[in-house]
Nucleic acid binder design. Structure first.
Length: 551
RNA sequence: GCGGGUGUAGCUCAGUGGCUAGAGCGUCACGUUGCCAACGUGAAUGUCGAGGGUUCGAAUCCCUUCACCCGCUCCA
C-alpha cells in the first residue's frame, strides 16, 4: 500500500541561540526538571519528565538498534575495513575497587588542589612549577602553571616581586632548574610566590578533590570496604571481555556495547544538563587486530559522526575535532571529539557529545599486568613494585583460523546520552510563523525533532466534541496506541491543540472531522510544513509508520 | 572554590517597609465554535527559594544558606 506523506520542510529556520527559552520549554512541557526541586534542587542532578524520558529512551534505543541489534554482520559496511560483529553487555555500577586502580581513574581522579588566598585562583598541585631565585639576598620560589610559557611567567613574576625593570634582569640569580611545587618540602611554603600573587606564602595546603563518588560495601564497612560508583561504563566491558569471548562464538573484530549510568563528582556542574554529576553513557569498546586498528579508528569516527547527522543534527553545528598529538596518550593513533555548538557556548565554540579514541591495548593490558603509564610501562610504586597490581588473567585473544595470539587493540566510541538528548533538544527548538484563525501570522514554537526521536509520534483529535467524532477518534487512538506512543486531545480549539503538539515535537496530528463521518477518511497534519492531506481511517497506522520511516 | 547577577502562580514577569501579593500567557469547567495560539462566562493555583534576625509590621532591610545564569578556576 502506498500512502502520500509530506516530507519535512527543507528550509527550516535556524534553532534558537537562547538557552533560557529552551530550559523554560523543557520545564513547561515536561522534558526536564531540576532534581529534588521542591527542596531547592541539587547541584549537578537533573530529572527527565514525561516527554523527556520518552525522548531519551528513543535516543538510547536508536543507538542500540543502529549499533547493535540491527547491525549487518554479513556484509562489509560502507567505509568499514571488513565485516565485524556487535553485541551488548550490562554491568553493575559498583565494581571491584581494583578495577579503578588499574584503569588509572583512582590516581587520576584524586587531584590535589591548592588555592591562592590572594588571587582566589585554584591550581592543580601537580601542575605548579617554579624556580628558586635570589635578589639582594632574598630567596624566593617563583611559580607558574606548567605549560609552554612557564619560564617567561616565572621570570615575569620574579621581576614584579623584586620590582626590577627589564634592563636589570641580570640581577636575578637563578638557582637550579624548574621543579614542581610538589618536590619542595614544607619549610619552603613561606618562600613560594604563587603564579598570580604579589606576596609570598598565599597558597593553601593541598586539598584532595575526589572526582569518584565513594560508597561503602556492607553495613559495617570500614576503610577496606570503600567502593566507588563507576565514572565510566567502559571498564565493565574490558573486565568482561574474556567472558564474552568464552561464552559466545564471536570472532574479532567485535564491538561490545553498553549503556548505563556513570557518576563524576564534578567540581563545577554547569550549563543545564551538559555537565551533570550523574549521567548516562552509551559506549562501545571495539576489539580488533592491532594491524587494522588505525583503519577501524577512522571508520568509527566517521560512522558515529554520521549517526548524529542522520538523526537531525545539522552539519553547520556539528564538528569532528581530531586531537593533536599533545592531547593524546602516547599509545593512541587518534582521538576525535564529536562536538556540537550548544547555544550556551559562545559563538564558534563547541561542546563534546562523544569521544572516539584509539586506545591500543592499554586497557586490556592494564587489567592483565597492572596500572600502566602513558608509555605502556608498568607504573611502579616507591618500593619499586607495581603500583597497582593487575588481575594476572590472560586477556589476549587467540584467532582460531590463523592460530595467532594477541592482545586486541580497542577503538572506543564513548557517547553521552544526556548530552545527545540536550543537543537534539537544542537543535529542535525553532520559532517560525504560522497563520492564526484570521490569517494573521503568529510566532510558533516548534520542536523539530526527528520522528524517530519524537516522544509522541502522533496526536489524535476530534475536530469538535459532538456528532460522534470523539467516539471515532477514541477508536483510532486505541488502534494507533498498539503501535506507537500516541496522544489523545479533545480540549479547546483544534488550532490550540496543534500548537501544543508542536511544542512537544509530535510529527503528525490526525483529525477526525465531518467528512470522516461520510467517507471514513481523516486528515493528517505535518508538524513542519503544516500541510494536511486525507487518508483512510483504517490506513492511519500504515501512514504514520511510513511517515516515521521516511523522515 | 572566587567574583557578579538572579530567585514572587505551571511559564514570563510587576510589586523597594503598611489593607486579603498582582498582570499576561498557560491550566480547568461550561457554552459557543467546524482545521492552525478564537470568543464569552466562571474557576483553581503562591512555604514571595530556605533558615534566622531587625521592626508594631518584612516579598521588600540585615545575616546565613541553597539553586540557577554569567565571568574566573576546573573539566578524567
Amino acid at each position: 500500500m502506498s500512502v502520500e506523506i509530506e516530507k519535512a520542510n527543507p528550509s527550516r529556520p535556524a534553532p534558537t541561540r537562547n538557552m533560557e527559552e529552551i530550559v523554560s520549554l523543557c520545564k513547561r512541557r515536561g522534558f526536564m526538571f531540576q532534581n529534588s526541586e521542591i527542596y531547592g534542587g541539587l547541584n549537578g542532578f537533573w530529572d527527565y519528565g514525561p516527554l523527556g524520558v520518552e525522548l531519551k529512551n528513543n535516543i538510547k534505543q536508536a543507538w542500540w538498534q543502529d549499533m547493535v541489534t540491527s547491525h549487518n554482520d554479513m556484509d562489509v559496511l560502507p567505509g568499514a575495513p571488513g565485516v565485524y560483529s556487535m553485541t551488548g553487555l550490562d554491568c553493575t555500577i559498583i565494581m571491584h575497587p581494583q578495577v579503578w586502580k588499574c584503569s588509572g581513574h583512582y590516581d587520576l581522579f584524586h587531584d590535589y588542589m591548592v588555592d591562592c588566598r590572594e588571587s582566589k585562583k585554584r591550581y592543580r598541585h601537580d601542575q605548579l612549577v617554579g624556580r628558586w631565585v635570589t635578589v639582594r639576598e632574598q630567596r624566593i620560589f617563583a611559580t607558574a602553571q606548567s605549560g609552554e610559557e612557564e619560564l617567561q611567567h616565572i621570570e615575569r613574576q620574579a621581576m614584579k616581586f623584586f620590582k626590577l625593570r627589564n634592563k636589570h634582569k641580570d640581577q636575578l640569580q637563578w638557582d637550579g632548574d624548574v621543579i614542581g611545587v610538589t618536590d619542595l618540602d614544607e619549610s619552603a611554603a613561606a618562600s613560594i610566590l604563587a603564579p598570580d600573587a604579589k606576596t609570598l606564602d598565599t597558597l593553601t595546603d593541598p586539598r584532595e578533590f575526589n572526582l569518584m563518588f565513594k560508597t561503602t560495601i556492607g553495613a559495617l564497612g570500614g576503610a577496606d570496604d570503600t567502593a566507588f560508583l563507576r565514572p565510566e561504563t567502559a571498564q565493565g566491558i574490558f573486565v568482561n571481555f574474556k567472558n564474552v569471548i568464552d561464552s559466545t562464538r564471536f570472532r574479532l573484530p567485535l564491538g561490545i556495547a553498553q549503556m548505563g549510568k556513570s557518576f563524576r563528582n564534578e567540581i563545577t556542574p554547569r550549563n543545564f544538563t551538559f555537565r551533570s554529576r550523574e549521567f548516562e553513557q552509551m559506549e562501545i569498546e571495539f576489539f580488533c587486530h592491532p594491524d587494522s586498528s588505525a583503519d577501524w579508528y577512522g571508520y568509527w569516527r566517521d560512522r558515529r559522526m554520521q549517526w548524529y547527522q542522520d538523526l537531525g543534527l545539522s552539519s553547520d553545528r556539528l564538528i569532528l575535532r581530531e586531537h593533536g598529538a599533545e592531547e593524546m596518550a602516547h599509545y593512541s593513533i587518534g582521538t576525535a571529539d564529536i562536538e556540537y555548538a550548544f547555544p550556551f557556548l559562545p559563538e564558534g565554540q563547541y561542546g563534546e557529545l562523544e569521544g572516539v579514541a584509539h586506545r591500543g591495548d592499554f586497557d586490556l593490558r592494564s587489567h592483565m599486568e597492572g596500572k600502566l603509564t602513558g608509555d605502556l610501562e608498568l607504573e611502579l610504586g616507591e618500593d619499586g613494585k607495581p603500583k597497582w597490581k593487575g588481575s594476572g588473567k590472560d586477556l589476549s585473544y587467540r584467532d582460531d583460523l590463523t592460530n595467532e595470539k594477541y592482545v586486541p587493540h580497542v577503538i572506543e566510541p564513548s557517547a553521552g546520552a544526556d548530552r545527545a538528548t540536550l543537543a537534539f533538544l537544542c537543535e529542535a527548538y525553532c520559532e517560525d510563523e504560522a497563520p492564526d484563525e484570521k490569517g494573521k501570522m503568529q510566532t510558533r514554537t516548534v520542536m523539530r525533532l526527528h520522528p524517530r526521536l519524537a516522544p509522541i509520534k502522533a496526536a489524535v483529535f476530534p475536530l469538535v466534541k459532538k456528532d460522534g467524532m470523539p467516539e471515532i477518534a477514541k477508536q483510532a487512538y486505541l488502534e494507533l496506541k498498539k503501535h506507537f506512543n500516541v496522544f489523545y486531545d479533545d480540549k479547546g480549539a483544534v488550532g490550540r491543540r496543534y500548537r501544543r503538539q508542536d511544542e512537544a515535537g509530535t510529527p503528525y496530528c490526525i483529525t477526525i472531522d465531518g467528512q470522516t463521518l461520510e467517507d471514513r477518511t481523516v486528515t493528517i497534519r505535518d508538524r513542519d510544513s503544516l500541510k494536511q492531506w486525507r487518508v483512510g481511517l483504517d490506513d492511519c497506522v500504515a501512514a504514520i509508520g511510513e511517515g516515521l520511516n521516511q523522515k
